[in-house]
C-alpha cells in the first residue's frame, strides 16, 4: 500500500532504426509520484513526455531501467489494472458509438453489466456524454473525441490516470469540462499524471510538476515551492482600514481596491511585514500576505533558457 502510484527508475529509451542514428528519447529518468497527487509533466515538443507515458502504459519497452505502477512493472498487464490512459490524440473504432466504446472497454476489464450501467451514468454526469451517446464516433469533433477518450480512461474507476495532453486542441468550454473533471477526480483522491502545454491549467490543477528537457529531468518540485522560482512582489490584502491609513500605506506601494478591501504590492518581504504590522496596529484585518511569483510560463521559459545555456543551445 505504501508504494508510489508511479515510479520511474533510471528509465531510458533509445530508438534505433537500421541505417539511422539512435535517438535518445529518454535518459535515465527517476521520478516518484505519491498516491493522491496531481502531477504535471512538462517539456517542449520532443522532450520525451509521450515516450515516458508510453513506457508507463506498457506500450513500449525501456532500453534500460523500469517503469512501475503501484510497485509493479508496467509491462505486466496486472500492473495496469488500476491505471487509465488518455493518449494525446485519442483514437477509437470509428464505427462504434460512445456507449458501445465504453461497453467494449468495460468488457475488456471484466466489468459486470450492472456495474457497467452504474459506471455509464457516472461518466455521463462527469463528461456530458448523454447527447452524443448513440452517435458514431466518426462524426465527432475534437472536443467530443476527447470526452470519449477521457471516459475510456475512467472505465473501471482506476486509482491512477495518465493523461497525455488532455486539454490539447480544445475550445474554452471543452477545456473547462476536462479541467472540472480533473478537479473532481482530484477531490476523490485519484492520482493524476498529465502532460500539458497549457501551463495555466497545470498551475491551477497540479500539486507537483516535473520539467523534462531533451529526455532528461531538469527539475521537479511542489507547485507552491518550485526550486528557483522568482518572487516578483509580495501582496498584502487588508480590510477595515480608514482612508487616511490606506492613503499612508499606499504611498510607495502598488495599491488597488479589491472586493474584500485594499491590496498593496511591495517588492520585499520586509516591506510587506511593515505594512502588515501597520494594518494590525490601526485596527484593520490582515486578509492575506503572499508572494507574487513569476508565472509558470515565465518559469518554464527560464528553465528552458538555462538548460540551453548550460548545454550550449542543445536543449531543443
Amino acid at each position: 500500500m505504501n508504494e508510489p502510484a508511479v515510479e520511474a527508475r533510471n528509465l531510458t529509451k533509445v530508438y534505433k532504426a537500421l541505417g539511422k542514428r539512435p535517438v535518445h528519447s529518454l535518459r535515465g529518468l527517476n521520478l516518484s509520484i505519491a498516491r493522491g497527487q496531481v502531477f504535471g509533466f512538462l517539456g517542449r515538443n520532443g522532450a520525451g513526455k509521450t515516450t515516458t507515458i508510453k513506457l508507463l502504459c506498457g506500450l513500449i519497452r525501456p532500453t534500460a531501467g523500469e517503469a512501475l505502477l503501484f510497485g509493479k512493472n508496467s509491462a505486466i498487464p496486472e500492473a495496469r489494472r488500476e491505471m487509465g490512459y488518455l493518449p494525446e490524440q485519442p483514437y477509437f473504432y470509428e464505427y462504434l458509438t460512445p456507449r458501445e466504446t465504453v461497453t467494449f472497454y468495460s468488457r475488456l476489464r471484466g466489468i459486470s453489466p450492472r456495474q457497467q450501467k452504474e459506471q455509464w451514468e457516472k461518466l455521463c454526469g462527469l463528461l456530458e456524454l448523454e447527447d452524443i451517446a448513440d452517435r458514431r464516433i466518426r462524426e465527432f469533433s475534437k472536443g467530443m473525441r476527447q470526452r470519449v477518450g477521457f471516459a475510456i480512461a475512467l472505465v473501471g474507476d482506476p486509482e491512477l490516470l495518465i493523461l497525455d495532453e488532455p486539454m490539447s486542441g480544445l475550445d474554452p468550454v471543452g477545456r473547462r469540462l476536462i479541467r472540472n473533471a480533473i478537479l473532481r477526480l482530484k477531490s476523490e483522491g485519484k492520482t493524476i499524471f498529465f502532460s500539458s502545454h497549457v501551463l495555466s491549467d497545470v498551475e491551477e490543477l497540479c500539486d507537483r510538476i516535473a520539467i523534462l528537457v531533451s529526455g532528461s529531468l531538469e527539475l521537479e518540485g511542489a507547485m507552491d515551492n518550485l526550486p528557483g522560482r522568482r518572487v516578483l512582489q509580495v501582496e498584502v490584502i487588508a480590510s477595515g482600514l480608514d482612508p487616511e491609513t490606506v492613503a499612508g500605506l499606499a504611498a510607495g506601494t502598488s495599491h488597488r481596491r479589491v472586493e474584500v478591501g485594499d491590496e498593496f504590492r511591495v517588492n520585499t518581504l520586509e516591506e510587506a511585514n511593515r505594512i502588515a504590522a501597520r494594518v494590525l496596529d490601526r485596527g484593520g484585518t490582515l486578509v492575506a500576505l503572499r508572494p507574487v511569483t513569476e508565472t509558470l510560463e515565465e518559469y518554464f521559459s527560464r528553465v528552458q533558457q538555462l538548460a540551453a545555456t548550460r548545454t550550449g543551445g542543445k536543449s531543443e
Partner: peptide, 11 residues
Amino acid sequence: KTLYTILAQPM
C-alpha cells in the same frame, strides 16, 4: 493507433 488504449488495458 486504436490499440494504444486497448493495450494499455490489463491484457
